[in-house]
Write a protein that binds this DNA or RNA. Structure first.
Length: 604
RNA sequence: CGGGGCGUAGCGCAGUCUGGUAGCGCGGUAGCUUUGGGAGCUAUAGGUCGGGGGUUCAAAUCCCUCCGCCCCGACCA
């Protein structure tokens, strides 16, 4: 894979084609380009700094890739930067291949443009806001929809100029509520963001698919196993979206996937298939009020009746855009407020406070129930359809109702999917079992529609001279997050296991003893030969004990390690070890080049 | 912002409860020995104990206050 994207072509004269000739001064340049550990800055750490929690964060610090300036702000050291640039290179190559056009937009934006779409308020909490010397208000860009759309509004006027897809690889700034896990969630991070503009929704789908396909290639080339899930569009707006998730226990996002079909979704969006009605006893038992002193929470009431929370009907009071709404759920389920807000069409949604609950239900918080409520919108989770024999609040202090039957006691209720899917639920597509996983969101593709193009005037003229807003898509990859996700997914107890595509260097030559002249000479010779065929090498030439250098080699995790030492040299061989497989082989120095080249090409 | 924890040498930590001249390991520097999986010995440098205020004869230790960092929850690439 590595070789495939970085051709090692020679021209007819047999000279290396990458701008290096056989003139003597060129050899000098090559020698200078040989990277010696002793002259690099690779500050490895034996122990893990105490403020790093997850493996990838610890390893980035320990392997000397990054250092922290402050919470959510990191410096990339040489090895970290090289790996970062490699991720960027993969992204750039695939974006270019997909026909996207690279541009670079400012990180500083005038406030005005954010006001024009109303997102100054929507994203107010995450934006860093500053003023210049004239007291003009500026923000540090958390994303760039407004900026590209403004560009397109100015530059594109005809259907003949479409489709277009602009992308950039640039630093974003977000005042994160809680920066976390090193580069995973930082206040300043590098993102590849792309924006497509099309003449119609149908063609926009083609652009969307092209990005989706490019993302599959990008993450695969980065050596990542990703899970693609259906996602909510959130503050971005728009119709549909997919997230590219790296499965990891430390992931901040919950997802569910079906064990049988291809269904997978972010928990925010995941649906649940039909489940059998919740029937707990005979339907003919009549509703009964029971004293339940001091039992308010679901757990307390369930304990009081010696049953499980599943038999409860949870009654929650919300205020949606100033209107009260009563929400019913199975007692062992949590509301998914994103789903709820969507169903209600509400832009603001808050739990009612105790006073509001008292006013609406006539009872203190903890005893709310659906029976007898008047003048309030009632909405129930779909899983409650046909529910009977349940227990719920009686809207009176210290009282609950038993033998509750939703249809009988409340009548026709609005039903909707309002709860979070969870482990063991049936798949909405095929009915088989859903499993819950954790994931790191490394990429996100959205179909945006015309929200931004309308507000910012990104209009084009069609064949008949009629004006239309361009149909947009937007596509993000967290580049710095992807880098860390690679480490999170590819490490062992000794250190990082880089894919060759991203590794700071594909090969390390470890000189067992820096004082053994023949070893040093051979190591340098091999390095020069490898560089001549386009494989860059890091030589560990430090005058350290071998064990020390082996540990560092495993920590840094370059894909191929060549060890040159007196003992093996006495037998006429050097050792070649693959970091990924741990497989070690011995070869005569003349044979090493070929072996290493093959290993590097494999080591994705 | 709510809840929990931490801040002592470059890194990892002890010392704080019970106030009395600031320690350990790793790392750094110099030397000798050692050299195939984070070496040994010797010498040596390095700390306003996060900042400020207070109590006290005396504060890393007790009190007040501010700051920073980490973890759990609400947001996102």
């Amino acid at each position: 894979m590595f070789g495939a994207h970085k051709p090692l072509a020679y021209d007819d004269s047999g000279h290396h084609s990458r701008g290096v000739s056989n003139r003597p001064e060129a050899n000098v340049l090559r020698r200078v380009s040989m990277i010696r550990w002793s002259q690099q800055c690779i500050p490895t750490l034996k122990e893990s700094p105490q403020d790093a929690e997850i493996p990838s964060h610890q390893l980035m610090l320990r392997a000397g890739l990054i250092r922290k300036l402050a919470g959510g702000l990191y410096t990339f050291l040489p090895m970290g930067l090289r790996a970062l640039r490699n991720v960027e290179r993969v992204v750039r190559e695939e974006m270019d291949r997909a026909g996207a056009l690279e541009i670079l937009m400012p990180a500083l934006h005038p406030r005005d443009i954010w006001d024009r779409t109303g997102r100054y308020d929507v994203l107010s909490d995450v934006m860093f806001k500053i003023k210049d010397r004239q007291q003009r208000e500026l923000v540090l860009g958390p994303t760039h929809e407004e900026i590209v759309t403004d560009l397109v509004a100015r530059e594109i006027s005809s259907y003949r100029q479409l489709p277009k897809n602009f992308y950039q690889i640039q630093t974003k700034f977000r005042d994160e509520i809680r920066p976390r896990f090193g580069l995973m969630r930082a206040k300043e991070f590098i993102m590849k963001d792309a924006y497509s503009f099309d003449v119609s929704s149908e063609v926009a789908d083609v652009s969307y698919q092209a990005m989706y396909d490019a993302y599959v290639r990008i993450f695969s080339r980065c050596g990542l196993r990703t899970k693609i899930v259906e996602a909510d569009t959130g503050a971005m707006g728009g119709q549909s979206s997919h997230e590219f998730m790296v499965l990891a226990d430390s992931g901040e996002d919950g997802i569910v996937e079906c064990e049988s079909c291809s269904y997978a979704a972010n928990l925010e969006r995941a649906e649940t298939g039909d489940m059998p009605p919740l029937v707990f006893d005979d339907a003919d038992k009549t509703l009964e009020v029971v004293d339940t002193p001091n039992a308010r929470t679901i757990a307390e009431v369930a304990a009081f009746f010696d049953t499980t929370p599943a038999q409860m009907v949870k009654t929650l009071v919300y205020i949606a855009d100033d209107q009260p709404v009563v929400v019913l759920l199975p007692g062992d389920r949590d509301v998914n407020e994103i789903k709820l807000a969507r169903v209600l069409g509400a832009s603001e949604l808050n739990m009612a406070d105790d006073a509001q609950v008292g006013k609406i239900t006539g009872a203190p918080t903890g005893f709310a129930g659906p029976v007898g409520l008047k003048n309030v919108r009632l909405i129930a989770d779909r899983k409650l359809a046909g529910c009977c024999g349940a227990i719920t609040g009686a809207n009176e202090v210290d009282k609950h109702l038993i033998h509750f039957d939703l249809a009988r006691d409340v009548g026709d209720v609005e039903l909707a999917d309002l709860s979070f899917a969870r482990e063991g639920d049936p798949c909405p597509r095929c009915g088989e079992t859903l499993h819950e996983k954790r994931g790191i969101e490394v990429g996100h593709v959205f179909k945006l529609g015309t929200k931004y193009s309308e507000k910012l005037g990104a209009l084009y003229l069609d064949e008949s001279g009629k004006q239309h807003p361009a149909v947009m898509g937007c596509y993000g990859i967290g580049v710095t997050r992807t880098l860390q996700a690679i480490i999170e997914q590819r490490h062992d107890e000794h250190g990082i296991i880089w894919p060759a595509s991203v590794a700071p260097y594909p090969v390390e030559i470890l000189v067992i003893s820096a004082k053994h002249e023949p070893s040093v000479a051979l190591a340098e010779k091999l390095a020069i030969e490898l560089e001549a065929i386009g494989i860059q090498v890091l030589i560990d030439d430090r005058d350290e004990r071998p064990g020390f250098k082996f540990k560092d080699a495993d920590l840094l995790g370059l894909p191929v390690r060549i060890s040159v030492g007196e003992k093996s040299l006495a037998r006429g061989v050097v050792e070649v070890k693959s970091r990924a497989t741990g497989e070690m082989t011995e070869h005569a120095p003349e044979a090493v080049l070929e072996v290493v080249q093959a290993l590097v090409e494999e080591a994705v």
